[in-house]
Design a protein around this nucleic acid. Structure first.
Length: 630
RNA sequence: GGCCCUGUAGCUCAAUGGACAGAGCACUGGUCUUCUAAACCAGCUAUGCGGGUUCGAUUCCCGCCGGGGCCGCCA
């Protein structure tokens, strides 16, 4: 990595000086490399002289940061002049309170065009992961309803993070855990039975009253069909402050469609079995349908999973028992008031947890234990959980569970993302399945398309709340920065189409000498070098985004790369009519543009987006016509 | 009450303890007979409050104020 070479140079220079006794005998601080925010400060910067000065001062020795910086800078200058591998640095300056700033050479930068192109689809790949086996679990929404805008955030975060970690050298398995067991499935069955009987024409209307007795009216919104005969009409949502009680079952037009499919598939046979009271069989069958819906949604959003894991598979395989036994053998279980508790609080959890109720039934926690044990047994070195904002209490419990299973809790990483709210008509509304106003990911996809939706989600830092302004996103599609990145790629593709029309074949510029650009006008050269700097930065972005689990760094990079590309495009003509570009410059720019296009494509693919060859402009015009300036 | 996240430009958000706090949108001007103007250029405005650590704090620590969330023998 470029950054490693820079670090190497500085470290070696300091070490050489220390060896020659240039510094008194103090502990040499670790070298930190920074990317200055201001271009005038060079490409890389280090504060090692200031750290060294502080170390000297602490033992009563003299030495100002700037003087030390000058000494180190002189050594670096000598090294880069002599060592061929260090020829990338051409300028070393001391600035400010004692920074040492390094600048990459223009000719060296221009030559990197070849490296970027040679990297191809592996551009930006690094190997900090060294094959570490990572299990990345995300979404894991319950199969009791469609994926919503809220829990959909995990889908994009997980998918993009998986891509990033893969590029950073990790062996990543992306996994979805279906909670297709337990009381919620029985509840699903309960409402399925009602819907099925309703569809079959059985008199179940009276049961609406049951529902409404169980929850505040605004919580339950049965479909219009289900509601007919009530004559209630649509009353304005009450401004209730009271927390509504959870209704038994799930009611919303979506569930009616599930019931319809259930009936088509099983012909209502499940309704007649003796075991339908409470609806476990119906619930399981409905969950199967919903799971397929969720998988369809994920496919539509281009979110890929390697493993779809079913909670229901754990009990038959004996893994639940094995998990409980593992905790018991570890001495972590205790009986209290007829229930079995795990003593997780001694391992950092907020509290102890019941794992077997006094009724003898296991809680869902036993499944979680068995599932984590299953993951470790599959040989994963790291487990990453991407969870919604209401799950922060899981962090301690999951880590404690790992510890109780005999693993280092540091191998468990829990990433909690921020709340998602929809902005409609300038008002932000909270959503939730239980508030009955959840917007699904499919609906968002219909409105905006998978790529725009994804970019919008990935622009924010994980923990930042996401206010999804649907109207703005819909109306301003053409201004969406994500599309700007795709447009940059499409624009580059257009140039190559044009080149082909002019009879310029790829092999004519494949070997072009990039140094032909060294004599360009200053503004042209600046745009070209700026573009190369951005392209070379991708590996640093990949490394950091993977290490910190922050895919939004890549979207920010994508915008910066697109901006650098657009500036290059506008400043440096190649085939533009009326431009008088020498042949060798033309070829070198085509080669550079090929590198830029590769970088844009790679960035888009890492984000999980398409890199389009062309983009139509109708959409933008339609928007312009739809909202004429007043 | 305990715990988690959060407060940066008019709005939505960035900023591995660094130098002059950046983008996008919005707004105001300028660039198309030209490789796609879905672009480019110029301009405007910000770290909630008070302490502390540090050569240096948006970042780390403490307190206050404000916003969101979680604290079941539900899953």
């Amino acid at each position: 990595m470029l950054q490693d070479t820079i670090r190497d140079i500085i470290t070696k220079a300091v070490a050489a000086l220390t060896e020659h006794g240039a510094f008194p005998d103090v502990e040499i601080p670790a070298v930190e490399i920074m990317r200055p925010q201001v271009a005038a400060h060079g490409d890389y910067s280090t504060n090692v002289a200031m750290k060294l000065a502080a170390a000297l001062r602490s033992v009563g020795l003299p030495g100002t940061p700037r003087a030390l910086a000058e000494t180190i800078a002189t050594e670096i200058r000598e090294m880069v002049a002599v060592v061929p591998a260090y020829d990338l640095v051409t300028a070393v300056e001391v600035a400010g309170p004692g920074f040492i700033n390094l600048r990459l050479g223009e000719r060296w930068l221009l030559r990197q065009t070849a490296d970027v192109l040679a990297a191809g689809a592996g551009l930006g790949a690094v190997d900090v992961g060294r094959g570490t086996r990572v299990n990345l679990e995300f979404v894991s929404a319950n199969p009791t309803g469609p994926v919503t805008v809220a829990n959909g955030r995990g889908a994009f975060l997980g998918d993009a993070l998986g891509n990033l970690m893969h590029a950073a050298g990790y062996d990543v398995t992306k996994e979805y855990y279906f909670n297709d067991a337990g009381g919620q499935i029985d509840q699903l069955g309960f409402s399925m039975e009602r819907y099925c009987r309703f569809i079959l024409g059985e008199p179940v209307f009276c049961q609406i009253d049951d529902i409404e007795n169980e929850a505040a009216p605004e919580v339950v919104k049965p479909s219009a069909r289900f509601q007919k005969g009530k004559g209630g009409g649509d009353s304005a949502p009450a401004q209730t402050a009271a927390k509504p009680r959870k209704p038994r079952g799930y009611y919303d037009p979506y569930y009616e469609s599930v019931a319809e499919r259930l009936l088509m598939r099983d012909g209502g046979a499940l309704l007649e079995g003796p075991a339908t009271e409470g609806g476990p069989a119906l619930g399981k069958a409905a969950a199967d349908i919903i799971m397929r819906d969720i998988q369809d949604t994920m496919r539509r959003m281009n979110v890929e999973f390697d493993v779809w894991f079913n909670q229901a598979s754990l009990a038959p395989s004996g893994e639940i028992e094995a998990g409980i036994k593992a905790l018991r053998d570890g001495g972590y279980l205790e009986e209290r008031a007829g229930a079995v508790w795990m003593k997780s609080s001694q391992l950092g959890d907020d509290q102890d947890r019941v794992i077997i109720k006094s009724s003898g039934e296991p809680t869902y926690i036993t499944s979680d234990i068995a599932y984590m044990r299953n993951k470790f047994e599959r040989g994963f070195d790291q487990l990453i959980f991407i969870l919604g904002p209401d799950h922060h209490g899981y962090i301690g419990r999951l880590k404690a569970t790992a510890a109780m299973l005999g693993h280092d809790p540091e191998r468990v990483h829990v990433l909690i993302y921020g709340n998602v709210a929809l902005k409609v008509g300038g008002r932000t509304m909270r959503m939730g399945k239980r508030l009955g106003n959840a917007v699904t990911l499919d609906e968002l996809d219909d409105e905006l398309g998978a790529d725009v939706t994804r970019f919008f989600y990935l622009m924010r830092a994980n923990e930042t709340p996401l206010d999804f302004d649907l109207e703005l996103a819909r109306k301003q599609t053409s201004d969406n920065p994500g599309l700007s990145v795709q447009y940059a790629h499409a624009r580059a593709s257009g140039v190559f189409r044009k080149a082909e029309e002019r009879g310029i074949a790829p092999d004519q510029y494949a070997e072009a000498d990039p140094l032909a650009l060294a004599n360009d006008r200053p503004d042209e050269l600046a745009a070209e070098l700026n573009l190369l700097r951005e392209l070379l930065r991708l590996e640093e972005v990949v490394e950091r985004a993977a290490a910190t689990h922050e895919p939004h760094l890549l979207t920010a990079y994508g915008m910066a790369l697109a901006e650098a590309y657009h500036l290059f495009y506008d400043t440096c003509p190649i085939l533009k009519a009326g431009s008088d570009v020498p042949r060798d410059v033309q070829m070198a720019r085509l080669r550079l543009m090929a590198a830029a296009r590769a970088g844009l494509a790679r960035t888009l693919h890492l984000l999980g987006m398409d890199a389009p060859e062309r983009m139509e402009r109708e959409a933008a015009e339609a928007v312009a016509h739809a909202s004429p300036a007043e």
